[in-house]
Nucleic acid binder design. Sequence first.
DNA 1: TCCCTTACTGACAAAATTGTCAGTACTTTA
DNA 2: TAAAGTACTGACAATTTTGTCAGTAAGGGA
Lengths: 109, 109
Amino acid sequence: MAEVPYCPMEVANRVFGGKWKPGILFRLVERSYRFGELKRDMPWISERVLIRQLKELVEDGIVHREDHRQVPPRVVYSITEHGRTLAPLLKSMADWGDLHFEATTRCTS
Amino acid sequence: MAEVPYCPMEVANRVFGGKWKPGILFRLVERSYRFGELKRDMPWISERVLIRQLKELVEDGIVHREDHRQVPPRVVYSITEHGRTLAPLLKSMADWGDLHFEATTRCTS
DNA sequence: TCCCTTACTGACAAAATTGTCAGTACTTTA
DNA sequence: TAAAGTACTGACAATTTTGTCAGTAAGGGA
């Protein structure tokens, strides 16, 4: 199959697309979270997956990870400056989701 | 695992997320396309997958499918009025993708 | 008659993503 | 001595998404 050329859509999609990243970022834009807090706040994501998503976001420079090196561990995740540029986009997505939800449920149910 | 509650992010993500939908929609916001045109314009998506994505978009009321009932077939896809509400969001995504691409390639390569 | 065209379908395979389960480290509290 | 707490990791399984391949219909042209 032909090679995929550079596409900004692909870039954006790779960085904050996926099943859970938008939701995670939506929270982190609001405030910092300890790992356990985030986990309890989104119990429908398995711990393993949450860790992986956070790791990818950290690698992409969207999220900052701060390990306080305590026992028991205390690790705090926060949005980076660069990640914050996603805020309006995330807001638009959520708004559109609401719009679409209302538009599609008004007549069918 | 806990049930996923209603989340506008999930809704938006389900409708226009995925590997190819943003790219397809980005094109359809510009103009209408015959199936074959779209296929040639994005040769990196397999025909089968392109059809499936379009079908889902049609089911979600984002894209309109018009079959001219000719032989050989002539099927034209266009964005619906509702789908058009995604336009600014798609633009923001593409813009952010560019921004991120430049931010991440400036120093690392 | 044979081949071309176009949009599409079904069966299936490969790959990517998501999820489960059992641990680990080290300190505090009982 | 035992248990609890926290943020993880590794091995592996299930699921979802994506991709491949071989068809099909039906008219037109050589």
